[in-house]
Amino acid sequence: MDWFFNFPFKSEWDPESIDRVIKQFSINNKVFFDGIKAGLNGMISTLYNILSWVPWWGYLILVFVLGYLIKRSWRTAALFSGMLSLVGFFGLWDLMLITLSIVLTSVFLSLLIGFPVGIFMSFSDRANQVLRPVLDTMQTMPVFVYLIPAVMFFGLGKAPAVLATTIYAVVPIIRLTNLGIRQVDEEVVEAARAFGSTRMQTMVKVQIPQAKATIMTGINQTLMMAMAMVVTSSMIGASGLGMEVLISVNRIEMGRGFVSGMAVVIVAIILDRLTQSVVKEKEKSL
C-alpha cells in the first residue's frame, strides 16, 4: 500500500542538469555576458555619479518643491524633506544614493522593455495570450530564484542585482500599459481611425495619451516593486541600504537594522507619493 500514500512515480531526472547547461551556456557566451555586465555597471555608476554630484541640500529642496507643487501643501512638503533629512541624520546618505542608482537603473530598463511590450500586447491578442502566463510566472516566482541565474551569468555585484530587479519590476508596467490601452473607449479609437489615422497616429495621438493615467500607475508600481527588491538583491552583492539591512540581520543588530530599514521605507514612501500624485493629477484633468 505504499503507493497509495506516497507518490509512486519518480523521475530519475536530475535538476542539476539544468545547472550544467546554464553553466556551459554562460562559459560559451562569456564575452556576451561580460559585455552586458560592463554596460549595466556603466549605467549604474554614471547614474551614481550624477546622483552624488547633487549636494544633499539639493535633494531636500527638490523634494520640498516637488512635494509642494504636487500636493499643494507646505506641511506635506516640509514633511517629505524632513523625512529625507533623517536618512542623512542616520549617516546613510551615501548608501541611499547607491540604492537609488540601482533602483532607478532597474526602473529605467523596465520601462525601456516594458512599455513597448505592453503596447505590442495591447494590439495583438495572440501576444496577449502567450505573454500573460509568462508575466504571471515572473510575478509569482519566488524572487530569490532570479538571483541564481543572475549570479551564474554575471557573478556578484550590482549588475546581476539590476537584472534580477528588472525581471521582477518589469511586469506591472507591461500589464498596465496593455490594460490602459485596451481600456480606451472604443468609440474614441474608432473616431481616430474614421478620420484616417494611420496605426501609428492612432497609437501616439490617441491611445497612449488616453491611457496615460493607467500607464502612470504602472510606472509607480514598477518603482515600488524595484524598491521591494532592494534587500533581496543585496544577497548577491548589491551594496546600499539593502546591504545594511542584510548585515544587521546576519549579526542580529536590531538598532542598525531598524535604522536602515526605516531609510528604505522613507525613500520608498517619498518616491511613491510623488509619482502617485502625478497619476491622480492626471486622472483629475482627464
Binding site: 468609440e187 474614441v188 473616431a191 474614421a194 478620420f195
Partner: peptide, 26 residues
C-alpha cells in the same frame, strides 16, 4: 467620408479645437 458617433468619440486629452482639427492634423 467622416463620421459622427453616438457617444461623441471625442478625445478627452485634447481641447476643443484640437478635437475639431484632428482629421486635418492626421
Amino acid at each position: 467620408v467622416s463620421m459622427v458617433f453616438q457617444h461623441f468619440g471625442l478625445m478627452s486629452h485634447r481641447n476643443v479645437i484640437d478635437n475639431v482639427a484632428y482629421g486635418l492634423e492626421v
